[in-house]
Design a protein around this nucleic acid. Structure first.
Lengths: 195, 195
DNA sequence: GTCTATACGAGGATAGAC
DNA sequence: GTCTATCCTCGTATAGAC
């Protein structure tokens, strides 16, 4: 269907490997093997490993934007859209149980490596944060929309980490249920609500 | 005060470095420099890097047990003890904002490295899990004590990850407040409570 | 117990042929 | 655009002197 360029295949393979093995622990040989090209050819497309990382982050940014836009287009209310966000934990549960959250994992690793691309990776989180914030604002919670967005982001992140640590998919399902209930129970006007 | 053995100093330095730089990214040279010994001497105390990792995990297990036991001895109720757990996010906030959660970080990294010590690292989480479970049970929530323990563990984990990603200490404080409120509001008998 | 010196392999990166 | 061959650095690990 798609005559995918070698460059695209490299980025895709790197994305896959960075998620499963981590950035630092993935070697050029690993990527080259996955793509099916030689290590030398590699450098025709990317001069350095950091350049590949930048391309991977770019790809994830684009994919994230597409996904958020798709949820927008579903024409439902903000609560339904936020529920779409929560549900990705279910859709991706098999991989999450094995490798955790791709974004959280990358951000954490780059922080420890003190890598210059740290902020770019965090920008993917920011994409979700701002999108969630907009949804909460549409629910009439403009006052604490950002707080709610961060809260939900953190909960999702924690669920992914613990599910991975304990290899527990059922935990994801239970927590997703609680988060969905929490969104449904959120009320527009007053701020004396429980959370 | 303490005539600390070289071995102990190595383990302590490794613990420190594994937290800040990650296990894989920490080299023998890094540890040797931190301790102030030569790389050669090193191998007199530990044959392999994995042996150091095992010692570090052991140290963390011991330290965790001591901490949990200390909270037990405070002679207060289970709610206060759980609050002690939540409050470590505040006590360690400076380091958490920089490097995230030491346990979650290690477990995630070892999972990606497919390291044999994965389960040992997860055992530290299990220590907290069982301890929290016991506290919730003492509150009369024996029926869903483990669910509550996992829930709180996940929330703490998520807070650490997000606080680190966004370099945001205030977020920790806000979320700690919510978690403390949540514990206080938990009721013993019925199970139709909000969460 | 601690040191220096060194073997060995892996990984990032380059040169140049095809 | 893709390949092979090669360089260089870094990191783990060992040998052996002090």
């Amino acid at each position: 269907m798609d005559a995918q360029s070698t460059r695209d295949r490299i980025v895709e393979a790197a994305d896959w490997l960075f998620y499963r093995r981590g950035f630092d622990h993935t070697s050029f040989a690993d990527i080259a093997d996955t793509v099916g090209i030689s290590r030398g050819n590699f450098y025709y497309h990317f001069k350095t490993k950091d350049a590949i990382l930048a391309a991977v982050i770019d790809l994830r940014m684009t994919n994230t934007r597409v996904m958020l836009r798709r949820w927008e287009g579903d024409g439902q209310g903000p609560k339904d859209r936020i529920t779409c966000f929560i549900q990705i934990l279910i859709s991706n549960q098999v991989e999450i149980v094995r490798y955790g959250c791709p974004i959280g994992g990358l951000v954490s690793e780059l922080a420890k490596l003190d890598h210059t691309a740290q902020d770019q990776a965090t920008a993917i989180f920011t994409l979700f944060r701002h999108w969630l914030r907009a949804q909460f604002a549409q629910m009439g919670r403009a006052g604490d929309a950002d707080t709610l967005a961060m809260h939900l982001l953190a909960r999702s992140q924690g669920v992914a980490t613990l599910a991975s640590a304990f290899h527990d998919a059922e935990f994801i399902q239970a927590e997703v249920g609680h988060m969905c209930d929490w969104v449904q129970a959120l009320e527009p006007p007053t701020n004396r609500n429980s959370r």
